[in-house]
Amino acid sequence: MCVVAGVDISGRLIGLLSVRGEDLGSEWADRVTSSLGGRVSRAEVEREIQEIYTALVAALGSGSVDGRAEEFGEVRALLTELSRNRALLGFTPTETAVGVLALKEVLAPALEGKRSDVPAYLQFAGLLDTLGLFTIEVYTRTREELISAQAEQLLELSTPVVKLWDGVIGVPLVGTLDSARTMVVMEKMLQALIDTGSEQAIIDITGVPAVDTEVAQHLLKTVVAARLMGAECTISGIRPQIAQTIVALGIDFGDIVTKATLADALRHALRRSGIAFSRTAPQAGTR
């Protein structure tokens, strides 16, 4: 039990929370709903507040005013759910924390002319600050998880593997190629080789702005991984600027086949697959 100068703080707090009855919950819901700009229904806010209020009074009944204590586990669980929902809906940390902190403003008028309740209110304000910070911590973790998941999704979308021909797949790369992205490229390409039964793969770097030693190493590792699967890789999109950079850096692609364009690489892959084709002259009267 929390006692300050002979005063039962927990008992006083329960009394303060009960002094205005339903009016307190209604005003609390008004402030929270207003801060959310109507993006959450009043009914939903009232439900959240009623659950938090009930758990808060129960925790105070244990005699503790420490928001990190075991007695406040149910309160923290409810605030975790609230914070995660707010984060997923795109609310700000302030809009999330106000769900707790607004109770201080709602409760303050009940102190008018009651100096004996001031110590209890100050203890309660500290408790709400602790719980408010807790909501921000949960909100931040949720946003980080969301951003990380979105980054993974974008990485997946930025490294497509397409079937160019029977037995030939292509990996068109656009943007910077780093270690994380190379791993995704390698995994997706190797899986595509298995799924399609292909023995030829084309890695097209036309959309890669620059090739340095690190990028070249990533490409070489991907080619080696494909060879271990019994497939041959061709790298296309070797523009004049990239060719000059590779030479200047002294990068050796060894016996890896490189082509200037994707069309050249596809032609090479088809020949390696035993597919014969020839250009046909246009017939008279056609264009």
Rank of each mutant, 00 (worst) to 15 (best):
S26M: 13
R279K: 14
A269R: 00
T176G: 07
A243W: 00
L24D: 00
S64A: 12
V184P: 05
L266E: 04
A192C: 08
A125K: 08
Q150V: 01
T206V: 08
L36C: 06
K163D: 09
G6H: 10
L173F: 00
A58H: 08
T176N: 10
A226F: 02
H218T: 04
T245C: 01
A120G: 13
L127V: 05
L16N: 05
A125Y: 08
Y139H: 02
T245Q: 08
L155A: 14
G6M: 02
L17G: 15
A120F: 06
A69D: 11
T94G: 09
R68H: 12
G15F: 14
E199I: 13
R267N: 13
R12P: 04
T222G: 08
L79A: 06
V185H: 01
S236N: 03
L127Y: 03
L78F: 00
E105L: 15
V57P: 01
L173S: 02
E199L: 15
I246V: 15
G63R: 01
I235S: 03
T92N: 13
T140H: 05
D264G: 07
A77H: 10
I251F: 11
I169K: 00
L56T: 14
D212R: 05
G274R: 01
A248Y: 10
L154C: 09
A210C: 10
E44S: 11
A110I: 14
I147W: 10
D23V: 12
W165Y: 11
L190R: 06
G254Q: 03
A281F: 14
V185W: 05
R143N: 11
M186H: 12
A192L: 09
S158M: 02
L219I: 01
F134L: 07
V162H: 00
L111M: 05
A260R: 15
E156M: 09
L13Y: 03
P93R: 01
A225K: 01
A77G: 09
E137M: 04
A125F: 07
R68L: 11
D8Y: 11
V211H: 02
R227M: 12
L103D: 00
L89S: 13
Y121I: 11
T234Y: 05
G61E: 03
E145K: 12
T140F: 03
T182K: 05
V168L: 04
I194F: 14
L219E: 02
Q217V: 05
L13V: 15
L249Y: 07
V247W: 07
I194Q: 13
G274Q: 04
L262E: 07
F253A: 02
D8E: 12
S64C: 10
I136L: 09
A210L: 15
I9Q: 03
R141Y: 05
C2W: 12
G113T: 09
Q191W: 10
P160E: 07
E46W: 08
T280N: 15
E232Q: 13
